[in-house]
Simulated scan of single mutants.
Amino acid sequence: MNCMQVGRVLQSYLDGETDEVTARRVAAHLEDCRRCGLEASVYRELHDALARRAEPDGGAVERLRAFGASLMSDPPAGDDDAEHGTTPPAGA
């Protein structure tokens, strides 16, 4: 899996909602990709922090929504495949 594919299923994976094959592929990618591993770590920390609160305050919820929207609208610069050495050869 590449970074974009993992990004599409990361939340479902972290929530335990992916099938076994997808879960294995995501886990393997997270072990190899520092950026995606960091993103997964941030999601886990956010989840744990929200779970500790009885009721999240409205401001925190709005900031979290805005952060999530920014992740969806601002793709990272660069080529994910090139970062992992999987760019097809020229002319392929």
Rank of each mutant, 00 (worst) to 15 (best):
A69N: 05
V26D: 01
G85L: 04
D80E: 14
R52Y: 11
Q11V: 03
L71W: 09
H29R: 04
L46N: 02
T86W: 05
A69W: 00
D48K: 05
E55V: 15
E17Y: 02
M1N: 02
R25L: 13
A23D: 14
P75L: 08
T18G: 06
L64A: 12
T86Q: 02
T87G: 13
S70M: 11
Q11C: 06
A66M: 05
E45I: 12
T87K: 12
R35A: 15
E20N: 13
N2E: 10
G91K: 12
C33R: 01
E39S: 15
G91E: 13
H84G: 04
A82H: 11
V42F: 02
R35W: 15
H84W: 05
D79L: 00
R44W: 10
T86N: 06
E39Q: 15
A23F: 08
V61L: 04
L64G: 09
M1Q: 02
S41L: 04
V61M: 07
Y13M: 07
R65D: 00
V42S: 04
L64S: 08
Y43K: 00
E62D: 14
C36R: 09
A60V: 08
L14A: 06
T86L: 05
V42G: 02
G78Q: 05
T18K: 06
R63P: 10
T18V: 08
R63L: 15
A66P: 03
E39F: 14
H29F: 02
A77G: 01
T87L: 14
D80G: 14
Y13F: 09
P75S: 02
R34E: 14
L30S: 05
A51M: 10
G78F: 09
G68S: 14
D19N: 08
M1L: 02
R24P: 07
R65L: 07
D19L: 07
E55Q: 14
T86P: 01
R44F: 11
A51V: 12
D81Q: 11
A77W: 03
T87M: 14
A28Q: 00
V9T: 13
A92Y: 07
V9S: 12
P89M: 15
G37V: 03
T22W: 03
P75W: 00
V61P: 04
E55N: 15
M72F: 07
A27G: 13
A40H: 12
G58L: 09
D19R: 08
P76S: 07
D15G: 03
T18P: 01
P75E: 05
T86M: 05
A27Y: 13
G91C: 13
M1E: 06
G37C: 03
A90W: 10
A82I: 10
E39V: 13
V6M: 07
L10R: 00
A27S: 15
T87D: 09
T22K: 07
L14K: 07
C36P: 11
E62C: 14
L14V: 01
Q11G: 09
A49G: 06
A23Q: 13
G16C: 05
P56E: 06
P56N: 12
R63A: 15
R52H: 13
N2S: 07
V9W: 11
C3Q: 09
R8Y: 06
